[in-house]
Amino acid sequence: MMKFMTLSNKNKLIALATCAVLISGCSDDDDDPMIVQEDAPAPVVMQTFDVTVTNLSANQPLSPVFIATHGADQSLWMAGAPASVAIEKLAEGGDSSDLTAISSLTHTVNGNGPIMPGMSETLTLSINEADVASISLATMLVNTNDAFAGVNNYDLTTMAVDDSSMMTLWVYDAGTEANSEAKGSMPGPADGGEGYNSVRDDVDFIHVHPGVISMYDGLADSVLTPSHRFDNPAISVKITRAQ
């Protein structure tokens, strides 16, 4: 008896044959010259630095410390030149918000609060190895009109793991506010007066601070006492590469 293939079975055979042809014409993806194998990205290497700031003064609290890393060709201030508004705000009122907003800084960190006389604070920065270059630091002596101290453009690239650098810092006068020491002109606890004032009524260039005079030294309108005097250097900083 002759057997007839139904249309349904015929269609199934055609489909199977077509599939076999398609499969045999395909090559392994790994051998396809059109597929590019991408290399795995290089792992990110971090470097960690601990920065310890110590207040050496007798009665000058420090504003919360501002620390930043940046390129080797950048400085936050320059002695003999006018202070930027960002430095003026820090030196007159302890406000580092304008410094933090500088777009060219690669990393920034701010202290947790004022550093009282004789006290220290350690802040840690973890930096992508590709961004490691220079570090700067700034803080205000708050029982003054516009005194600040800091590290300006210190090179980190030569520091190996466990290396430390110890330095003492001179106090600078921002030159933006006259050192009247008058009531209402200083933000610290000795006065509780104003901080930043946009009016510049001093020499308008940064220089080493001559120190405070106080009411007991003949400045009749001063609200400061001999305890608020400071000798240079008034701050110490230790930078350690921890990792």
Rank of each mutant, 00 (worst) to 15 (best):
M5Q: 14
N9H: 14
T18H: 09
A20H: 07
V21Y: 09
I23T: 10
I23Y: 07
S27P: 11
P33S: 08
A40S: 13
A42M: 11
V44P: 08
M46N: 14
Q47K: 13
T48I: 09
F49C: 03
T52S: 02
T54D: 04
L56V: 03
P61S: 06
P61F: 01
F66C: 02
F66L: 04
A68R: 00
G71K: 09
G71H: 09
G71S: 12
S75W: 14
A86N: 02
I87L: 07
G94N: 05
T100S: 14
A101G: 02
I102V: 08
S104R: 09
L105T: 07
L105F: 12
H107V: 11
N112G: 14
G113H: 02
P114D: 11
M119A: 15
S136C: 08
N143A: 05
A147Y: 07
N152C: 12
N152D: 14
S165V: 12
W170S: 15
W170Q: 15
V171C: 08
G175S: 04
T176V: 14
E177T: 15
A178N: 12
N179C: 07
K183T: 14
G184W: 05
M186A: 02
M186F: 00
G195Y: 00
G195V: 00
Y196R: 03
V199S: 10
V199D: 11
V203C: 11
H207Q: 13
H207G: 11
V212Y: 02
I213A: 07
D217V: 03
G218W: 02
F230L: 05
N232W: 04
V237P: 00
